[in-house]
């Protein structure tokens, strides 16, 4: 399964949008946090987990999804949110803690919910597994179309919720896919120091589901693996476990000194940045010309700028609204 030209254009533009978004957030996040870095200060307070480098996973999978398909993401959610089509303006406003945000400033960057495109994320590791499996169950019971994808980190694959949810999804043959983003780190702990097997795809065997490993942080290969899994789920043949080799170009969160990384690792990763690599390949194989790429990049830039403007010019929430929307 290879992506069409149109899909490739969407994938590239979405990757660039995500990267521009993260770069802009990174800059704004530091406003008010220099020279003294205090997480509570500036226009964007709290923790900030950037997804730079991991964009291929988001677009390679979400290229196959419709609005009605379900995605659960993690504490590092921006790339998936953007690829799933979450309203970028309202998502940005949420990150800025504004009244116009997705939840009116109640949740922030780790709690982005957009019902229109069936997107949710959360801050506890592997927490999205159960809800994604449950959504898949609901679609199956209701006879409604829809595939549920849980994105998790490689560190989350050691959490009980991962294993229990995989078993349940397999047992009930649900339209579910677990995509593990292996960026080789769980905060400061390397995958090899936390996981009993080198690769998590082998764990599919424990649940009798296909386990697929995709190396190289390659959008084409991820697209292909995800396409097969989505088709299998839509056909009613049950879940798939996919692990994707990717990497984070940023720290675990902003403010992370990254002292745990071996010397030279960051430089080597930047040399493998998937965005310039995709650009080069699109040009080389004639899928896009320079003018088209520039157009996509300009559109990405403009979308991000518009979202930031929207967030910055939005009002703060009424403080007492913290006590609303607690019960349905």
């Amino acid at each position: 399964m290879t992506p069409s030209k149109k899909q490739l254009h969407w994938m590239y533009e979405t990757m660039v949008t995500s990267r521009r978004f993260e770069e802009t957030i990174e800059k704004i996040y530091l406003e008010g946090k220099q020279p003294v870095f205090n997480m509570a200060s500036g226009p964007i307070p709290g923790e900030m987990h950037l997804s730079n480098g991991q964009e291929p996973v988001a677009v390679g999978v979400c290229a196959h999804l419709e609005d009605h398909d379900i995605v659960t993401a993690t504490h590092r959610p921006h790339h998936e949110a953007i690829a799933k089509g979450v309203d970028l303006k309202r998502m940005t406003a949420e990150i800025f803690g504004r009244a116009t945000g997705l939840s009116g400033g109640r949740g922030g960057h780790m709690h982005l919910f957009d019902a229109k495109v069936n997107f949710a994320c959360a801050g506890i590791i592997a927490q999205g597994m159960g809800p994604a499996v449950g959504a898949a169950l609901s679609r199956k019971m209701q006879g409604k179309p829809g595939v549920a994808v849980a994105f998790i980190g490689e560190g989350a694959a050691n959490q009980g919720a991962f294993h229990e949810a995989m078993n349940l999804a397999a047992l009930w043959k649900l339209p579910f896919i677990c995509v593990i983003e292996d960026n080789s780190w769980g905060i400061s702990v390397a995958k090899k120091d936390a996981t009993s097997v080198p690769r998590n795809d082998v764990r599919g065997a424990a649940y009798g589901v296909p386990g697929v490993y995709v190396g190289g942080n390659d959008p084409w290969k991820i697209f292909e693996a995800a396409g097969t899994a989505v088709a299998r789920a839509r056909a009613g043949d049950g879940p798939t476990l996919i692990e994707v080799e990717t990497f984070r170009l940023a720290g675990h969160f902003m403010g992370d000194a990254e002292g745990y990384r071996p010397k030279g690792e960051k430089e080597a990763l930047f040399a493998r940045d998937p965005i310039p690599a995709m650009r080069k390949r699109l040009l080389a194989d004639g899928t896009a010309d320079e003018a088209q790429l520039k157009d996509m990049e300009a559109r990405a830039e403009a979308r991000v700028a518009e979202a930031i403007d929207f967030a910055r010019s939005s009002p703060a929430p009424a403080p007492e609204d913290a006590l609303t929307e607690i019960f349905a």
């Binding site: 307070p45 803690g97 009116g104 109640r106 709690h111 607690i326």
Partner: peptide, 12 residues
């Protein structure tokens, strides 16, 4: 109630 994110809400 759950602890809110936005600075104004959290201070409240």
């Amino acid at each position: 109630a759950p602890i809110p994110y936005a600075r104004e809400m959290e201070a409240f």
